Amino acid sequence: MSRLAVGLVGWGAIGRTVGTALAAGRVPGATLVRVVDNRPLGDALAAPQSSVEEALAHCDVLVEAAGAGFVREWGERVLCAGTDLLVASTGALTDDELAKRLLAAAPGRVHFTGGAVGGLDLLQAARSMGPLTEVLLTTTKLPATLEQPWMDEGLLTRLRTATAPVEVMTGTARDVPAHFPRSTNVAASVALAVGDLDSVRVRVVADQAATRTRHVIEAHGPFGSYRFEVNHLPDPGNPATSQVVPHAVLRGLAALAHSPGRIL
């Protein structure tokens, strides 16, 4: 079978790790052939830097590692061009209309990665037996990674001076990712597994003493109760991203590279 030609969109904390691993041959059956990034990146890239249009002409799959904005602007065009799209910024899928358009677009296929959270397969299985009656996600991060342009001075001061954990926001998996587009992809991933954005409650907590990013998922239904907790070291170059995320992307690429249904 031909090798999977990969285009990488974004050369940040996620993209550099994914691109370096691909260039080193750590994903058998997959090759990095293009890097898409609007910034001047120099000559140290693992593959030629190009526009999205040029990447579509050379790639079987584009890996989104640039944020939800790329999914909104380019997602449908990528899929309609016949190129698959692996989405890391699952928060983009909290937009129902966008999600419907992406799932309906063809001949390319859209794929998602759970990123920094596990247990999604069990939540999907539990959901298949009947609706879950309660799903709560509590995400705790360093205050600096949660600061947003919409915050008023009062909230920003609380975040910067608090000596104890501060609840920054509570809402549904539809609402919260829109307010924290780079910090709450886990909320979207859980909601996609559960199948209902509005049934997943999300608490975002800032903790100055947090040395790790913590996600706690609690779910209850007629057939059982479930609790998952993950504690990740943040990426030193971008503390809003957990170090494990690019490795989840690489795992997704490995699955695509060896999928018997892949047509090249």
Rank of each mutant, 00 (worst) to 15 (best):
S2Q: 04
R3C: 13
V9D: 08
W11I: 10
G12Q: 01
G19K: 03
A24R: 15
A24F: 11
G25A: 08
P28E: 11
R39L: 13
P40C: 06
A46R: 14
A47H: 01
S50M: 03
S50I: 04
L56M: 07
D60C: 01
V61R: 01
V63G: 09
A68P: 02
A68W: 11
V71R: 02
E73V: 04
R77L: 03
C80G: 04
D84G: 05
L85Y: 07
L86R: 00
T90L: 06
A92M: 01
A92E: 02
D96I: 10
E97G: 11
L103N: 12
A105E: 03
G114M: 00
G115I: 07
A116K: 09
V117P: 03
G118W: 10
L122M: 08
L123C: 10
L123G: 07
Q124R: 13
G130Y: 13
G130V: 13
T133K: 12
L142W: 11
D152K: 05
D152A: 04
D152E: 06
E153Q: 14
A164C: 07
E167W: 00
E167L: 08
V168T: 04
M169F: 12
T170S: 11
A173G: 12
R174G: 07
R174T: 09
R174F: 11
V176T: 05
V176H: 02
H179A: 15
P181R: 06
P181C: 03
N185L: 08
N185A: 14
S189L: 01
S189E: 00
A193G: 10
D196Y: 13
R201Q: 11
R201G: 13
V202K: 11
V205S: 10
T213G: 12
V216M: 09
Y226F: 15
R227Q: 14
E229W: 10
V230H: 03
H232I: 12
P234L: 00
G237H: 04
P239H: 09
T241P: 01
V244T: 04
V245A: 04
H247Y: 15
L256C: 00
A257Y: 08
H258Q: 13
L264S: 15
L264I: 14
